[in-house]
Amino acid sequence: MNGPAVLVLEDGRIFRGEAYGATGAGLGEAVFATGMTGYQETLTDPSYHRQIVVQTAPQIGNTGWNDEDDESSAIQVAGYVVRDPARTPSNWRSRRSLGDALADQGVVGVAGVDTRALVRHLRERGAMRAGVFSGDALAPDAELVERVLASPPMEGADLYGAVTTREPYVVPAEGIRRFRVAALDVGIKFNTPRMLAARGVEVHVLPAGTTIAQIEELAPDGFFLSNGPGDPATADGPVELTRQVLERRIPLFGICFGNQILGRALGRGTYKMRYGHRGINIPVVEHATGRVAITSQNHGFAVEGEAGERFDTPFGAAEITHTCPNDGTVEGLQALEVPAFSVQYHPEAAAGPHDAADLFDRFVELMDDGRAPGRHRLTEEGA
């Protein structure tokens, strides 16, 4: 840590601390993440692009930074705010400190902040525009507030194009290839193709601008919609591609941003949440079974709907399959007459609990069922 640093919120509240990582300025949306572990996966998750992440866990950086747990090719956050960073990391896989990783990648952090007070403020006022400033970027408070107010809000932000792959690539199946999946990258995490590959799936990761003709050329057994950042109301291209996939009855599975894209393709609206769900301890209820899973999540937008609701779509009936018992947020969708389902959380569990890993098995079953026309229901009722 070196010199003073500040976190400035758009409502004028300022939290002071010390510089951590790189010095300079970072602008984004201030959000809090509740995971006590998994900071490396959080920081490299493309869903956090242009967000300033506040860690609720007071001690951060104890296990350092390794070369195995990145979920993308770089740290994605616009800034990082912690209370008590580790002075010396200790883990057999650690290759550098968290502070060094932030500095090496130009990510501005603030340490020594009263993160309890900060999180309480964000819970009351909601996620909001913010800036982190240190070094030469420091200026009078009023000037820094003006810089934050001049920055774009997350609502209406079109960000998935900034994190998608520029060229297609393939993650081969482990062992015998059972299926081929076209995965639309609107912010995919590295562990997702690995989870599919472990189930005999060859994953073709495709840029966000991929066309239906390119999908058909691959002749995939399934189509995957990834997680990603920004406002789903801006994702008109992926939504139209999803509609075309549904028309062709290609088995479809979506997570997080992909859940919102499928929701829009089915005719549902989306909305900005007050402060969103970010962490690895968020409960979700599956209505068909009553099963509760503890899940990993990162989203500030959600699909409109209520628990168990059935609704008409251009592709037949659909239903809300999962919700969060904390606030009623829609956590899953399923089309009943075409082979498609999605969840709002992260079953790849990087980082996070493994309660939802079976969703990848359900996707494999859906693709297997797709080879026998008429068997597309995921619930026991339609099996």
Score class of each variant (00 low, 15 high):
residue 123 R to P: 01
residue 123 R to Q: 04
residue 123 R to C: 14
residue 124 E to R: 07
residue 124 E to Y: 12
residue 124 E to D: 15
residue 124 E to C: 11
residue 126 G to M: 06
residue 126 G to S: 09
residue 127 A to V: 00
residue 127 A to F: 04
residue 128 M to R: 04
residue 128 M to G: 02
residue 129 R to K: 12
residue 130 A to V: 05
residue 131 G to A: 06
residue 132 V to H: 00
residue 132 V to L: 04
residue 132 V to E: 01
residue 134 S to R: 02
residue 134 S to L: 02
residue 135 G to S: 03
residue 135 G to L: 01
residue 137 A to R: 00
residue 138 L to S: 07
residue 138 L to F: 06
residue 139 A to M: 14
residue 140 P to Q: 10
residue 140 P to I: 12
residue 140 P to E: 15
residue 141 D to H: 15
residue 141 D to K: 11
residue 142 A to K: 10
residue 142 A to G: 00
residue 143 E to V: 09
residue 143 E to P: 02
residue 144 L to E: 07
residue 144 L to W: 02
residue 146 E to T: 07
residue 146 E to L: 07
residue 146 E to S: 06
residue 146 E to N: 10
residue 147 R to M: 09
residue 148 V to P: 04
residue 148 V to L: 06
residue 149 L to A: 14
residue 151 S to C: 10
residue 152 P to F: 08
residue 152 P to H: 05
residue 153 P to I: 12
residue 153 P to T: 07
residue 154 M to S: 05
residue 154 M to Y: 14
residue 154 M to L: 15
residue 155 E to N: 11
residue 155 E to V: 08
residue 156 G to D: 00
residue 156 G to H: 06
residue 156 G to K: 11
residue 157 A to R: 02
residue 160 Y to H: 12
residue 160 Y to S: 06
residue 161 G to E: 06
residue 162 A to H: 11
residue 162 A to G: 07
residue 163 V to C: 06
residue 164 T to G: 02
residue 164 T to M: 01
residue 166 R to N: 10
residue 166 R to H: 13
residue 167 E to R: 15
residue 167 E to W: 15
residue 167 E to K: 10
residue 169 Y to C: 06
residue 169 Y to K: 13
residue 170 V to G: 08
residue 171 V to T: 12
residue 171 V to W: 07
residue 171 V to P: 01
residue 171 V to E: 06
residue 173 A to H: 15
residue 173 A to P: 04
residue 174 E to S: 13
residue 174 E to N: 08
residue 175 G to C: 06
residue 175 G to Y: 06
residue 176 I to D: 12
residue 176 I to S: 08
residue 177 R to Q: 08
residue 178 R to I: 02
residue 179 F to I: 03
residue 179 F to D: 00
residue 181 V to W: 04
residue 181 V to S: 01
residue 181 V to R: 07
residue 182 A to N: 02
residue 182 A to F: 01
residue 183 A to T: 05
residue 183 A to V: 02
residue 184 L to I: 14
residue 185 D to N: 11
residue 185 D to R: 09
residue 185 D to T: 08
residue 186 V to F: 03
residue 186 V to Q: 00
residue 187 G to H: 08
residue 187 G to M: 13
residue 188 I to S: 03
residue 189 K to A: 03
residue 189 K to E: 12
residue 190 F to P: 07
residue 190 F to D: 10
residue 191 N to Y: 15
residue 192 T to H: 10
residue 193 P to F: 15
residue 195 M to Q: 12
residue 195 M to W: 04
residue 196 L to N: 03
residue 198 A to S: 12
residue 198 A to Y: 11
residue 199 R to A: 09
residue 201 V to Y: 04
residue 203 V to T: 02
residue 203 V to P: 00
residue 203 V to I: 13
residue 204 H to F: 09
residue 205 V to Y: 01
residue 208 A to D: 03
residue 208 A to K: 00
residue 209 G to V: 09
residue 210 T to N: 02
residue 210 T to W: 04
residue 211 T to I: 12
residue 211 T to A: 11
residue 212 I to C: 00
residue 212 I to M: 11
residue 213 A to K: 15
residue 214 Q to M: 14
residue 214 Q to K: 07
residue 216 E to F: 05
residue 217 E to T: 15
residue 219 A to C: 15
residue 219 A to S: 15
residue 220 P to T: 05
residue 221 D to G: 00
residue 223 F to L: 04
residue 223 F to E: 02
residue 223 F to I: 08
residue 224 F to R: 15
residue 225 L to A: 04
residue 227 N to H: 05
residue 227 N to S: 13
residue 227 N to Q: 14
